[in-house]
Nucleic acid binder design. Structure first.
Lengths: 145, 145
DNA sequence: CATTGATAGTTACAAATGCAACAAATACCG
DNA sequence: CGGTATTTGTTGCATTTGTAACTATCAATG
């Protein structure tokens, strides 16, 4: 690709990233949508709570780079389905500590396994070096430290 | 990462891909949203038309991996803003050939330049080898031939 | 050609999202 | 203290999206 060739769409990274993200997300969605009735954001919140334990909505917002309204609604949905509970933090009653119920933990355990399997399966087509580079480049573009 | 370590969220590719896709898409959106009043799908359709000339909605669907309703609405919006026109195909009046107006072509020319610049800027942090691997891995995951 | 089936594209309705305004609690500062 | 500003989280409303049903045209088959 010389500098003056017109840009191919498949070389435009936001486009490529969106397509890869959609393809893989829709694939993996099969794992949780029907069985647990979760949306993508809910799965993402569940994953954070399962992986990192009790968190406040604010913490999830910044860790997952999600807007607070999206998190607020995902938390409500997960609460409604009894996957998590809120507990007041007495020292600052603006915060609510979110933690998984037994049922939420079970769902997380299962989905984490599936996620691991999906991920490993996806990565098998790449060499170790490619995996390493891919991860590093994606993190940089997503501005994840 | 040994096989039995729990999966880190930042190593789960659908998650990483979504974050990178959102970050870069929102960045680049600054270029077209205010100035041309386009949404992401509309920019995507415009890009395809500008890059590959007259196409039918169906062709755009399969090339861009977009659902036909999304394309239909994007086309209507682009038409309303006089970025494209539809012309009947006499041999099969179900098809409509979509082509850019002068104004649409001008917007495309400008945005393609911006896209190239944005892309090159994003890629400068990577080595040539990394760029190559990144592109290849993303295409494979997006199932782009 | 008449009937049935397929294809291109649109539309109606429900669900999800983004944005701004909001309420409640706390922090800051005279 | 008392008032203003910040922070955490929710809600209302407009916009966008997904799904399914729909229209219009064409193809295939008897």
């Amino acid at each position: 690709m010389t500098k003056n060739d017109p840009l191919q769409i498949q070389d435009f990274l936001p486009y490529l990233l969106n397509r890869a993200a959609e393809t893989t997300s829709l694939d993996f969605q099969k794992t949780y949508k029907d069985r647990y009735g979760m949306l993508r954001t809910e799965w993402r919140v569940l994953f954070h709570l399962g992986r990192y334990g009790g968190l406040t909505a604010k913490q999830i917002c910044s860790m997952a780079d999600l807007h607070k309204t999206k998190v607020s609604r995902a938390v409500s949905a997960l609460e409604r389905q009894r996957f998590l509970v809120r507990t007041e933090v007495p020292t600052d009653r603006r915060n609510e500590l979110l933690s998984l119920t037994k049922q939420g933990q079970a769902a997380f355990d299962h989905l984490q396994q599936e996620a691991t399997r999906y991920n490993e399966n996806l990565l098998t087509t790449f060499t170790a070096e490619e995996q390493e580079i891919l991860r590093r480049c994606l993190k940089k573009m997503a501005r994840i430290p």
